[in-house]
Design a protein around this nucleic acid. Structure first.
Lengths: 230, 230
DNA sequence: TAAAGTATAATTGTCGACAATCTGCTTATT
DNA sequence: AATAAGCAGATTGTCGACAATTATACTTTA
């Protein structure tokens, strides 16, 4: 079930391990965004052959974490504001739809599990402090559960397999400790309620607003920064 | 511009050429859906080394045309009804959003170009005959233009780079010569009008209905088939 | 001095071979 | 007879080397 998550999947081959190692290095910014990737360099660093490294690079390309040009090489994607906003647009569309489908397809057990998770969050010290409600990872994450709940393999692949890491990369590198913590918690509650009521239409609208609110929050911040520097 | 289309991109390296060759073979059903891929076999067939073939296979995996398991091998994805419906759900969400963004971001020139294209279609013999309005490819395609018009690189990548080929594969292998030809044409007209009016909200709704109508059309067909066999 | 051309160095693409793993069949055991 | 263990055969993963292409630095020329 949750093993569909590439992040949690066990690394069975050397290329796998190196893939995850580089993945984390990029997401955490240890390999700078926008920097060029040296195949001989990285291969030496991880003590593997170039073939194996290239296998790992291919997977990173699948996650849109690096970009390759023929006969030129690979670069880590760079984190631009425009890129971030583009991702939010995609998420609004896809997670909105995932939420609609989740309201239709989730089993009662899955819904109960999600409600339990939310109850735990309500007590969590982090939430009380109003910090870092966004920081959980993997299958602890609310959005994650909703996406899996859609039972749509295409949606799961795109959102959990590809965009997930990009989103984390942006969050970490832009230092987004959401100030919307308590607000987000309430929105999550309402979304779960809609799913529980099997109201797909409402569930989608609420999820879209939830994500759009985050996006607007970022746009506002950017606007403030821009007006301050002028 | 249209060079962002991986289908039209020029193949510069051998792996590229083989990638496109196998891509077409799979989409056209010359390599059967669901069949296992033999690396030694295909390498011999295309007269290349296994390394080069694996490079090509990696790209096919990016398009979700094949699936790989570690130490086991690759299989061509199989075309199931569920899979097809899943794709329609994703398309409804993403192309709907792309249409909204297109209404915001397309230049006047781009819109004029799209209107010209539609006018051409209106005269086309194919349309008069009520056949095959869906069969055009590449940047002739209406949906394609809308997606590019969103100016959102993420949307373009996912829809044109990944899903595009899968959709074509399903269309060809399920033999979908849409009987909705004239109807689809009218719907396209209305969508372009909404974009022309810069009405993103309406444009999204119309596109979603347009795609949902196709999906329901398929569901109906399936239901008929099932009731006939019982 | 700036621009263009050339040669050298470095990087990427491709190849064939070996090691590790899986598949299917035979054989042995209860 | 059914299940488990073990053994070929084939397939995938990994490696190091060579070929093709690109980037860099230097020289030449206007």
């Amino acid at each position: 079930m949750a093993l569909d998550n590439p992040t949690l999947q066990k690394a069975v081959t050397t290329a796998d391990k190196v893939f995850y190692a580089i993945l984390h290095a990029i997401v955490d910014g240890k390999i700078a965004a926008g920097s060029k990737i040296s195949e001989p360099g990285l291969a030496k660093q991880y003590e593997i052959s170039r073939s194996t490294l290239r296998e790992a690079l291919n997977r990173l390309e699948k996650c849109h974490l690096i970009e390759r040009k023929a006969n030129v090489g690979s670069r880590v994607v760079d984190c631009t504001i425009e890129g971030l906003l583009e991702i939010y647009v995609v998420r609004e569309a896809l997670e909105g739809m995932a939420c609609r489908e989740a309201a239709i397809n989730m089993s009662d057990d899955e819904i109960a599990e999600m409600q339990d998770m939310l109850a735990q969050h309500a007590n969590a010290q982090d939430l009380i402090d109003g910090v870092a409600y966004y920081q959980e990872e993997g299958d602890l994450d609310f959005h994650y559960k909703v996406i899996l709940g859609s039972h749509n393999q295409q949606l799961i692949n795109i959102l959990c397999g590809q965009l997930y890491h990009l989103v984390r990369m942006y969050r970490i590198q832009f230092g987004m400790h959401s100030p919307r913590a308590t607000r987000a918690f309430e929105e999550h509650s309402n979304i779960i309620q809609a799913i529980c009521d099997r109201d797909g239409e409402l569930a989608e609208i609420l999820m879209r607003r939830h994500i759009a609110a985050s996006r607007k929050n970022i746009e506002k911040k950017i606007a403030l920064q821009n007006s301050a520097t002028q």
